[in-house]
Design a protein around this nucleic acid. Sequence first.
DNA 1: ATTGAAAGAACCCCGAC
DNA 2: GTCGGGGTTCTTTCAAT
Lengths: 161, 161
Amino acid sequence: MHSEMDDIDRKICGLLQANARASSAELAETVGLSVSSANERVRRLVSQGVVVGWQARLDPDVVGAGLCALVFIDMDYEGEPEACAALVARPEVMELHHVSGAHSYLMKIRVRDSRALQAFLQEVLKPLPAVRRTETLLSLEALKETTAMPIAGLDSGGDDA
Amino acid sequence: MHSEMDDIDRKICGLLQANARASSAELAETVGLSVSSANERVRRLVSQGVVVGWQARLDPDVVGAGLCALVFIDMDYEGEPEACAALVARPEVMELHHVSGAHSYLMKIRVRDSRALQAFLQEVLKPLPAVRRTETLLSLEALKETTAMPIAGLDSGGDDA
DNA sequence: ATTGAAAGAACCCCGAC
DNA sequence: GTCGGGGTTCTTTCAAT
């Protein structure tokens, strides 16, 4: 791609992770630039693919997604890509990781309640041909759940080289 | 607390999960309301706590958080709240779930590389008095990773760009 | 890259239905 | 709750440094 990120870029990223609706004026004030420059920085970060999207975060209970479950999935090699594609397409599936260790995949899903969980496992997951075995853990409480990345070289965000 | 969400609220939530920077004009167009009404809906959803935040999503690799790991943690009852608080405060910790099953907690962290992972486990996680045992899985590939909730009563529940 | 200023777009308060 | 209008704030563009 191109040029490296500097400290100002990192600060802006950190601010936008905490508040995606921060105005250019706010950003400019915090990082010590003019409004135009701050705006230009954001535009660059988006066009360079550093910022890949903007999400509103919702209260899970209010929208009927209060139950969170972690599901280990063992898959056969045959039909694995199709099964993954089918799962990724489902709105209940919030994460799908190909993991090292005893199981093939770890999936995080959110549904309304245990009935909906049961329905998902029986009607969506198990019918997939590649799915051999599953093991479900309930998230009894999500103490933290964010997509905000630690930003290398930012004090409030992670470690340095 | 108060009134229930209607279909329009759900649609707006879905749209804002996919694009938190959608203008009131866009929202109004999609749900079939005036700009004023759409704006008022968003204001209400925020003040009622349905929308709890706005996040920019960043490319993990670009910001130096390319390595994702899932860590099972067994904890003693003594000192458990302090350990959880310490972990939640760390920017590398993206999720911390109290889970059912053989282990106490499942934590998702993001760091730069395996060296940083090793450092985190040795210098942050293990020194916590309550932490008895840990088991780390590497996410070899995150096929999906979102905070967009499925919205009950909305057909195209939220997946993002 | 950064800046100030001007043009354009968006948001927000308000009174009416 | 919804709507349109008018004032205000924000974003975007532009010429210049």
